[in-house]
């Protein structure tokens, strides 16, 4: 295995001999499907890959509050408003579980936030598309959270313990997100022609960006093989994309909407659906900052962070004062 060697060389010359047994222990732990825990020795590459993936995942949850959050004030009923509130609150929670996991690897939370708002770390491309009608809230729950479930359920077995445990919590909550979306769409489909058209329009706009959420095709995903070897990832991008399509087609039938792909059909031989190729040039464009809402999303996040600075400072000052007072009383 080459990993052992690269692990040792990553760490530099000095402790190379001492690290051989540590590297071996790491390899054996992974091979036996056991979890790596925060204080274990791990190759630098493993740590870096995890920090990047977990931070990107956390940022996605945090930015993901925005597209749907915009509809909280315009939700059509108190019931829908309360549901949407709870959902957006969950997204914040998911982001925080993940930042917490990233910190066990030595990352600093404030630094990760800086990296996000300075554009040095990415978040999921899907959140750079606008939410044009309330049907989008439903379709995001159905497609985007559905795709997230496909991605995340296998991550509950990820080799890094704190990440896997965060995913378990997240997956439990994600199921509510997907179901509320689908139920919302069923309600709209029982409504007027105009409402049904809104649903179909939202489906047309979100289908392809949702397929892109799984990332580039396997032959253009250079880091996948290493992540699979380390069991950080459990399935390839294309496998997960296929799973999502197979899962969604019957749901679309039941709902009575058409998925906007003329090449989509059941392939008896493969036992899977065949489907068209997403516009990978569009994905690259959105990832590089050229999506419809990239600037808006980051600006909003930056503003919230900067406008909240005085609150963080005030809380720190208050805590210091309380502490000082308590110390004085106990020594008096």
């Amino acid at each position: 295995m080459t990993t052992t060697h690269s692990a040792a060389s990553d760490a530099g010359g000095a402790g190379q001999a001492a690290e051989e047994p540590l590297a071996e222990h790491f390899e054996v732990t992974i091979a036996r499907d056991r979890r790596i825990e925060p204080r274990d020795w791990m190759p630098e590459g493993y740590r870096k890959t995890l920090v990047r993936q977990i931070a990107q995942h956390a940022h996605s949850e945090i930015i993901g509050m925005q597209p749907e959050g915009e509809w909280i004030t315009r939700a059509p009923s108190l019931r829908r408003k309360a549901i949407l509130f709870a959902k957006v609150q969950d997204e914040a929670g998911h982001g925080l579980y993940l930042y917490s996991a990233a910190e066990t690897l030595g990352a600093d939370r404030a630094d990760l936030t800086e990296r996000l708002i300075e554009g040095r770390q990415k978040y999921s491309s899907i959140f750079n598309y606008p939410t044009l009608s309330f049907a989008d809230v439903g379709v995001i729950g159905w497609f985007v959270d559905g795709a997230a479930i496909c991605n995340q359920v296998p991550l509950c077995r990820s080799s890094y313990g704190p990440y896997a445990r965060a995913m378990v919590r997240i997956c439990k909550e994600e199921s509510f997100h997907q179901r509320q979306g689908y139920e919302l769409l069923m309600t709209m489909m029982r409504g007027t022609t105009a409402q049904r058209e809104m649903v179909q329009d939202a489906v047309d706009r979100w289908w392809w960006p949702s397929l892109m959420m799984f990332g580039p095709p396997d032959d253009a995903s250079p880091n996948s093989a290493q992540s699979m070897a380390w069991k950080i990832k459990r399935h390839t991008n294309d496998e997960l994309r296929q799973r999502f399509v197979d899962m969604t087609v019957p749901q679309a039938d039941k709902l009575g909407v058409t998925l906007p792909d003329p090449e989509l059909r059941w392939n008896e031989e493969r036992g899977h659906h065949d489907f068209g190729t997403p516009d990978w040039a569009e994905l690259m464009r959105v990832i590089k900052g050229g999506g419809p809402c990239n600037t808006e999303r980051i600006t909003r996040r930056r503003t919230a962070h900067e406008e909240g600075a005085w609150v963080r400072e005030a809380a720190t000052a208050h805590a210091a004062k309380q502490h000082e007072r308590a110390t004085k009383e106990s020594t008096a």
Binding site: G93, R165, A166, R312, T316, H318, H323
Partner: peptide, 22 residues
């Protein structure tokens, strides 16, 4: 898990909001 807070009291309310929503 973990979280950041200015003091114990804030840590407890944040923990309630973050880890016991259900």
């Amino acid at each position: 898990g973990s979280l950041h807070a200015a003091d114990h009291r804030m840590a407890l309310t944040h923990a309630r909001d973050l880890y016991t929503r259900r």
